[in-house]
Design a protein around this nucleic acid. Structure first.
Lengths: 230, 230
DNA sequence: TCTTGATATGTTGTACACAATACAGAATTT
DNA sequence: AAATTCTGTATTGTGTACAACATATCAAGA
């Protein structure tokens, strides 16, 4: 996952790794945003045409998504976006909760000034999402915040694991929340409060506190979902 | 990763998933046992011939191994078994240590009688490994014990994550241990003691204690490696 | 009407030919 | 002699044809 020969002044043409990363990220985002909802059948041929390539590189991407648990290919049938019941979801959530705490404890990366500025702008933007956001916008924003907060640890395998688990749960959360008619506006408001609390912790330089706040909110968020779902 | 249509009395011929799993497991084991040491170049054509298939399914396997961080493909060069410096290894170890504790805490699966019998036989076998074992045998045995102890949690994502991390570290540990002329006999003896301690904890029904013992030994094992390596 | 079988169609899986790339070593030039 | 260019060779990446497979549709028969 490391890139060499990166010469910013002379933009090299995208290598095979770049193309793969772009397609993987794009399709993963579509799955996460429910543009490709659980149960939907993806067509290798259609994706190949859209991305201007043949089936082979697309199959490479879908294979990775299958290893990540987001799709499942069946010979003669198609490649189907996976679904999860509440039990599976609960397992991933329990693990995410524990790992989130580790971000503040394992190889913590104290935020520099640039990071704080970036985070401040995120907190401000969360107010806008409250005002005008759709579920789609909310999820996109949530993804962005997640990626930024992940920078608080320099432990690479921890980052990779958390990213993996995040994408396994977020889309199912969104789908279930919509089905259960969870009050998304309320969720956004709580998210805004969470960001403010994390901001405070980060300004105090207390990474552990920031991680624990995040941990608590992940836990509560899942609890709300379960209660509503009864 | 779930299989249906499994009819034990009528052995269905291996499906595409089975073939993939077999090849992946086999190559992964060879990498872990240093049969394919870091830096070695794997040939898609040769592997294809050995497994009696074409390059395409082999490439599917190597792609997964690349996502798991065990190999890295370079266009025009080859597929190289990856290496790790002590810093990378330390990151994975720190994460493994934390996750090991979770096995006893997250969705613990109390061992039944059958499990205990299986574990008892492992403890007995560890004595034999002390007597006649080669580094190769030791590692194979270690892998087996690891897989068995992983059954103590029913949390699937936790299992998958731990397995992934295990295979990232074990081979590097073995290689470094050999290079640093670590006393492998002593390591085996300590491992035997660890198994006896875990056995005691499991008989008391204390999964948490068993996990903490394992955690402690992973930590100490890495410490011994670092001290020797100076 | 229901069941059963055949068939047509669409999908993923596999094999293979070829393109793109990297690198070593010879050939050439300075 | 040193540097440089050229060229041969081996490897992974891509495109494509076809095989393997699952399923819906339809027809025939009980």
């Amino acid at each position: 996952m490391t890139y060499q020969n990166e010469t910013p002044h002379d933009p090299v043409q995208p290598t095979v790794r770049d193309r793969h990363a772009v397609m993987h990220g794009e399709i993963r985002q579509r799955i996460c945003l429910l543009e490709y909802p659980p149960g939907m059948r993806l067509s290798e041929a259609a994706l190949a045409e859209e991305f201007g390539t043949s089936r082979t590189p697309i199959r490479r991407v879908l294979a990775r998504l299958e290893d990540e648990g987001l799709v499942q290919s069946h010979h003669g049938v198609g490649t189907i976006v996976t679904d999860s019941d509440i039990a599976e979801l609960a397992q991933v959530y329990r693990l995410r909760i524990e790992l989130t705490e580790l971000v503040g404890r394992l190889d913590p990366e104290p935020p520099n000034e640039k990071f704080m500025l970036r985070f401040d702008s995120l907190v401000q933007r969360s107010a806008k999402v409250i005002a005008t956001g759709t579920p789609h916008d909310f999820t996109r924003f949530d993804m962005e915040v997640f990626q930024v907060l992940l920078e608080l640890t320099s432990n690479i395998p921890l980052r990779q694991t958390m990213e993996r688990l995040y994408f396994q749960t977020k889309r199912i959360w969104l789908k279930t929340a919509i089905e259960a008619q969870l009050d998304l506006d309320e969720e956004v408001r709580i998210f805004h409060q969470e960001l403010e609390a994390i901001q405070l912790a980060l300004r105090s330089g207390d990474l552990n506190a920031a991680a624990h706040i995040q941990r608590a909110h992940i836990s509560m968020s899942f609890q709300r979902l379960q209660q509503q779902n009864i």
